[in-house]
Design a binder for these strands. Structure first.
Lengths: 236, 236
DNA sequence: TCCTGTTAACATGTATTACAAGTTAACTCG
DNA sequence: CGAGTTAACTTGTAATACATGTTAACAGGA
């Protein structure tokens, strides 16, 4: 006979659920005021610290907005904002390994290149073009070239128009940029990078998502290959 | 003269930031134990209710996992998933938001498929194959088919071997899965999905990253196309 | 009449103390 | 050696008191 685990809920859990439910069921508008703490304590028959912990949790979820001296109000949140928050947490609890970050970067850059090719305006293309022109300067110090390189990529992400990807890429850039400043690519790698940048720009200008994807994939694969252990066999 | 608003931070705010920073800066592993409440109260020189409110907030974000009698731990994938579940059930998702989630999902799934094709063991392939066999059952209720579908995808992400992407996908799946339960794909979409699942499996079995990427790209593109506003022209 | 200052009422923020309830390790006994 | 008990540890909850911010009402002076 297989019995299921008994689920224990703390009083704080119950209060969180109750308040969240009331907000949802009564379709309370963002900004509408909830009863004060002392009244909620009375109504829910719980202690004030329990209520405050529940409200603290709801505040983190964006479901309520606690304003000292004024009261507690229904939060003005969106699922997108919450998703961003949770994605940040997911990043924080994940191991900080350069390869992991680079793989995620690759995933996002490729998808964003497709979307940029679909979305780009003439002005966007002009700006991307100007950035690549700056990168053509052979005298450019590496750190500066890297900075402009990342601005090119950031612009593509922006054009793609997905807030989640933008937020994640800021975290990734911060981590990856720190690491990449410490390594100098070869002349050959530089030239391949430039060539692929140009191919990406052309695909975006032509509004060709498949070409953009292909060029970005190659670009990212070159970046990943530099990071992975050198394996010359595929024996598995 | 224009002065800026003075930002007031409560003690709870400060404690939240401090603990989050410690977790991040010390690269604490998911599941690692934090000092007990009484010790944290001592170290941070704040009252216990303040500390508990801060921990309650961090728990809502999935950054910590509070276990009665045992201690407080850095959040892990499971505790994060529980947070996501609670949160996403409290807010409604707009079609535009759903599209954002699906785009990020697409980015990661495609990268993961490449990596799965590089990494998969015979056992992995066997398991993937068994999942697809289950999906062949035409009598399978939609909700159940969807569940197995997501297990197939989760397995691919696992094989890819990037914990960061796994954690991010746990967040995304919660947001995406709920919506998909509510919409029933057409027979044609189902068949295309099945066909592409098989192509993905074949590519993984053959250790062919390019084929895996292509099949997954098609699969994800079909998902995205269902979500996008119906535009029949590319006039831009 | 209008504006400034004061006060009281209301509301959240923080601290202290005490007890409840769950977990786990160590010890004792059969 | 296994089961039961106990103590130590840990989080959960309650009660009480005070601090601090907000706002409305009122009074006084120009």
């Amino acid at each position: 006979m297989q019995l299921e685990a008994i689920e224990r809920r703390t009083t704080v859990d119950l209060v969180v659920d109750r308040i969240a439910r009331v907000i949802k069921d009564q379709k309370l508008a963002a900004g509408s005021r909830l009863p004060g703490e002392h009244e909620l304590v009375e109504q829910l028959q719980v202690s004030r610290p329990v209520l405050r912990e529940a409200l603290a949790r709801l505040q983190s979820l964006g479901l309520v907005d606690i304003q000292r001296g004024r009261g507690t109000f229904v939060g003005d949140t969106t699922s997108l904002a919450n998703c961003v928050r949770l994605l940040q947490s997911a990043v924080t609890i994940s191991p900080q390994e350069l390869l992991s970050y680079a793989e995620l970067r690759s995933a996002i850059e490729v998808q964003a290149a497709r979307q940029a090719a679909e979305n780009a305006t003439a002005k966007d293309i002009e700006l991307l073009s100007a950035l690549l022109k700056q990168l053509d300067d052979e005298e450019l110090p590496y750190a500066e070239a890297l900075e402009i390189d990342f601005r090119f990529h950031r612009k593509l992400i922006e054009i793609a128009g997905n807030v989640l990807m933008q937020n994640l890429m800021e975290v990734i850039y911060e981590f990856v940029l720190t690491q990449m400043v410490r390594t100098t690519p070869t002349q050959r790698e530089n030239q391949l990078g430039r060539k692929l940048h140009k191919a990406i720009l052309k695909a975006v200008r032509d509004h060709d998502p498949d070409a953009a994807e292909l060029a970005m994939r190659k670009h990212m694969q070159a970046v990943l290959d530099r990071l992975r252990p050198q394996e010359f066999t595929n024996a598995k």
